[in-house]
Nucleic acid binder design. Sequence first.
DNA 1: CGCCTATTTTGACGAGGATCGAACCAGTCT
DNA 2: AGACTGGTTCGATCCTCGTCAAAATAGGCG
Lengths: 123, 123
Amino acid sequence: MSKQPARTPLPLALADCHTPLVAEPLSADQAERLAPSFKALGDPVRLRLLSLIASFEGGEACVCDLTDTFDVSAPTISHHLKVLREIGLVSSERRGTWVYYRAEQPALDLLSTVLSVPQQAGA
Amino acid sequence: MSKQPARTPLPLALADCHTPLVAEPLSADQAERLAPSFKALGDPVRLRLLSLIASFEGGEACVCDLTDTFDVSAPTISHHLKVLREIGLVSSERRGTWVYYRAEQPALDLLSTVLSVPQQAGA
DNA sequence: CGCCTATTTTGACGAGGATCGAACCAGTCT
DNA sequence: AGACTGGTTCGATCCTCGTCAAAATAGGCG
């Protein structure tokens, strides 16, 4: 992606960007920080995982609750959860035998805001 | 991505999904339709292109207005614009010598809604 | 018509990513 | 301790994607 010199990972989606993308041009830096979050959402399995976790009762789900829903192997689920976690879209916590994942709503909300279209934003 | 049997391309982001992802679990089908749009947003150059186009005066921009802003070659810009266009995030129109791109705000708004977090959605 | 500019298409290449099976680590229970 | 279940890491494989240079297409103009 955009072969630039070699950038910092920027795991957190907390770009200094809280204005809609349609309102003013994203800087190269902002784009570089936001893109990985959207990329993380760019896989159907991850999208479903996130949605499933977020809409689970209590707002969190055990990995064992998630695995059976998908046609992919457990390592693959684990891999996708790791991607979501490292980008800050979910957090995880081990409680005894099980590991629980929880959606990070502020991160989601930030992305939603970036994509939002303010009234009379048209031509 | 998710090696499933072989799915239709589903170029349009018009999934039958207008509810936030955190409200109820996405179906496999919905996820399969939405993910490509997020994937399209998952590249910094495309994110900036979209933002630049959307926030241009008149809501549209000529390719020649875009090219100089980036460090990548013209074919690469063209490639990214094609990706955005085929997914329905922008539309293009040729007027004489130049080609103008315009952001498809309804598509953006749909994605924004999907990511939005309704009040008291928490635990 | 032939040339010039704007944009896209083509082909190739290297890097990244999704997936799996196997091996491994973490707790629990007996 | 040993065995069992839940979950993650490792290594390999295959396919996708971003990028560029070169060639092709589209309009406008002399």
